[in-house]
Amino acid sequence: MWSVTDDALLEGMAAGDPDATEAFVARFQRRVFGLAITIVGDPRAAEDVAQEALLRAWRHGAAYDPRRGSVTTWLLAITRNLAIDVMRVRRPLAIAPEELVAMPLRTSHAEPATLAVAHDDAARLHAAVADLPDEQRRAILLAGIGGFSAREVAEAEGIPLGTAKTRIRTAMLRLRAVLVTPDPAE
């Protein structure tokens, strides 16, 4: 089952195949739970988020459009949106900003070989994030993974709102520039 592509697994799950469903959950549970707990900080809340994200993937798998991104990207986006909703309602549970910006970023070598292109981009982005000036790296991690609004980034960092917005915007432009520049290794 592990040699089956993510797309095929999702398709099988959407069609009601119990083996595909079980394999899908087994394959993605660490990614989904990892992102959820990174954002909400609390294991119980993270479990609720992860379960709901997988439930939505199961329920709406037929609506997934591979042209819009990989299954992983789709599923992580669902997870992030759910986690941010929870965080906004149950703010005291949210992970501390210092903890979030200090987390070790995931490297892409552990992904299955079926997503080679996504690996390359994720690996380049990983390097590009590490190369950002510290204040921009912190801002983009808080906003991009933690779901902090610009105002919340400003509060967490003790900086004016305009400065937080500039840091987020500049970091995104730098990362985008890296991704649209052809990879010299290709």
Partner: peptide, 19 residues
Amino acid sequence: EHNEVADLLLHLAPEADPP
């Protein structure tokens, strides 16, 4: 183009074993 960066950022979150 910004969406693509935002999507990829989520790939950097560490994995973790659920309960």
